[in-house]
């Protein structure tokens, strides 16, 4: 059952990711992005990272993609159908894709990794639960949390700054 779920989620994730790249329409792309994100969240569940799965759904599907959709509606761009990608760019992209694929396959074929599959964990050995997150984030990782706070602050300020309509500041001096 779990195996089936894994393959189902994997197919879902990859397929919808592919559709994000392939779909002409930005709205469709965003929709498929939601599916991708949900698929990844599902995989998180399989990996026992329930909290991250919830976070992924909340932040990505709930906020990020909605933001995307919002912007797409707002901009109402004509779509990119008119401009076809050039042969060169397609070729380059395919080459890059093949290279990456090759890389992925080659390191998966490495002897060290094949063994790791044995390191199966049937129960949940690491406390990937909320309490453990709390402990870690507010003790060992307190400094990065503080920095992240500043990061969010400047991101917020930046968004307000950039998206304000041209309400000109009074010139002093």
């Amino acid at each position: 059952m779990l195996d089936f779920l894994f393959y189902f989620l994997a197919a879902l994730t990859l397929g919808s990711a592919f559709m994000v790249v392939a779909s002409r329409n930005a709205v469709n792309a965003a929709m498929f992005l939601i599916v991708t994100v949900a698929g990844v969240a599902g995989l998180f569940v399989l990996l026992g990272a329930y909290f991250l799965a919830v976070l992924q759904i909340l932040v990505y599907a709930g906020a990020v993609v909605v933001l995307f959709l919002f912007v797409i509606m707002l901009l109402d761009d004509g779509g990119e159908a008119k401009v076809k990608p050039t042969a060169v760019s397609i070729g380059a992209s395919l080459a890059a894709f093949m290279l990456l694929l090759l890389g992925v396959l080659s390191f998966l074929g490495g002897p060290e990794l094949v063994d790791t599959g044995a390191a199966q964990a049937t129960e949940t050995p690491i406390g990937a639960n909320l309490q453990e997150y709390g402990r870690q984030l507010f003790s060992v990782y307190l400094l990065p949390v503080q920095v992240a706070g500043f990061l969010l602050l400047i991101a917020m300020i930046g968004v307000i700054l950039i998206s304000k309509r041209h309400q000109e500041e009074a010139l002093e001096e």
């Binding site: 990782y141 990065p144 920095v147 500043f150 990061l151 300020i157 930046g158 700054l161 041209h166």
Partner: peptide, 30 residues
């Protein structure tokens, strides 16, 4: 902080703070 980092979490979070800061600063003349 970045220059004193000894941990990938620290490197990532400081580097991203810098990067996001630069996204805003580069497009500052809105």
């Amino acid at each position: 902080l970045l220059a004193q980092s000894n941990h990938f979490v620290m490197i990532f979070i400081t580097l991203e703070t810098v990067t996001i800061g630069f996204y805003i600063l580069v497009s500052y003349f809105r």
